[in-house]
Write a protein that binds this DNA or RNA. Structure first.
Lengths: 249, 249
DNA sequence: CCCTTGATGTCGAGA
DNA sequence: TCTCGACGTCAAGGG
């Protein structure tokens, strides 16, 4: 996994190292004093400072400072990645089009540079996404309301898609908007737009239900004011036994 | 800047290394085979695989795979960070409350671990933020429309704040919503809510203007349908000479 | 602490 | 390519 590592390399050695590994499906890690310029959707310039540079085999690049999860500068993917000598310093160029952006990293001093092989994409499971919540509630719509019958999922209406489209025990249409976390007023407005869109399509009464484990106070106020309903549901709803059985076969 | 670095340390050596540096205002970098568990707002589990672990002096932690800017797992800040031996493996615990979350990293094998001092927070300048756009347009509102007089910035109405509140040459109130990039329909709806909020407060006519360098086709359609206006403005508007002069004094 | 908004958001899906 | 919406979004700012 560890391919090669240099400590305090001279610029020429660093350049050779980078050129050898940059396009070799390798992950590069560089710690050193660095200056970064970015130009694209915005423009930024970071004066020389101690930073940590990461270049992944997919061409993505990130420059980390001493705080936070977010890099100081980054490039999500690069169409062109190169290293050159400029005024005695190694300079990395990372460009992409669409959007047209460039990140230029000037390495003033390199304390350590390492080439790694992170080839293995290990199995990764995430539980609690909205998609899973949608699947579970589509199977057990009574967790939202008794007598609910799901007609559709991700139904496209105008702009955006209705998470769950259903009919209640009295035959009214129901638009359900799901949120995996605490719902804010934005979710209520989103639901309101979907309900409006459906009302232009069908003559029958249409209800709107926001289903989430929690809701902010202002959001609940907006919901009440606009005739929309809030139903508390767990982020990971327990599928009932009778609903679970069919999954096994 | 480079404090200490180990290659292929045994679990005991790694544990000693981590314990020595974890709470020493130091940035840690570890490359190795790793297994990650996360539980909090959601739950995730990553089977053993080659990963790159980063721990910053503010307690933030991130685990990177071979692709993308986003870490596979992370913890934005930690209230409690510790390293222990468990079944012959070093295990890192990173906890926080509010939201209650925990990330557990089990180090199956460590190829390289490094302690760095990223102390320097170097000067960083970003140009092209919405805040800067707002400042520039507040000084030169004619870039939006001739005869516009800015009354307020970040005016709070109900929920959220109006970027620019102004009056046009005919005395009508104008709500301006700014976007630094291409505006989507969400921005139009946001503007619509602010306009509605103002209309409940004042009797005079109220206009709504979305000012952005670009707009999506659907968003423009929504704007026209709801009587809102779109004005194209540069993300970094040039301040005119006559407007720039007063800045100097 | 709750809530809202901005972000070089990133990322993936769908038309 | 364009557009939209989720995200364990993160992170800053105001009440």
């Amino acid at each position: 996994m560890l391919i090669e590592s240099l400590t305090h390399p001279a610029p020429e050695a660093l350049l050779a190292f980078l050129r050898a590994h940059l396009h070799a499906r390798v992950t590069l890690h560089l710690a050193g004093e660095v200056e970064v310029l970015y130009a694209g959707r915005a423009t930024s310039m970071a004066e020389a400072g101690d930073r940590l540079l990461l270049v992944k085999p997919d061409g993505s690049l990130q420059v980390h400072g001493p705080r936070g999860v977010k890099p100081v500068n980054w490039q999500p993917r690069t169409d062109h990645l190169s290293a050159d000598l400029d005024g005695g310093c190694v300079v990395l160029h990372a460009e992409r089009r669409s959007p047209a952006e460039v990140v230029r990293v000037r390495v003033i001093g390199c304390a350590q540079v390492t080439a790694l092989n992170l080839a293995d994409e290990a199995l990764f499971l995430l539980q609690g996404s909205e998609a899973q919540m949608q699947q579970a509630l589509a199977r057990a719509p009574h967790l939202i309301e008794d007598g609910l019958t799901v007609l559709d999922r991700e139904l496209l209406v105008g702009v955006g898609g209705i998470d769950l489209y259903a009919r209640d025990s009295q035959g009214r249409f129901v638009v359900v908007e799901l949120k995996r976390g605490k719902a804010g007023h934005e979710a209520v407005h989103q639901l309101g737009r979907y309900v409006d869109a459906v009302r232009t399509q069908v003559a029958a009464p249409v209800r709107g239900i926001l289903a989430a484990p929690d809701i902010t106070v202002p959001a609940l106020k907006v919901a009440r004011a606009t005739g929309l309903e809030y139903v508390k549901v767990d982020a990971l709803p327990q599928v009932q036994e009778e609903a679970r059985q069919p999954m096994l076969f």
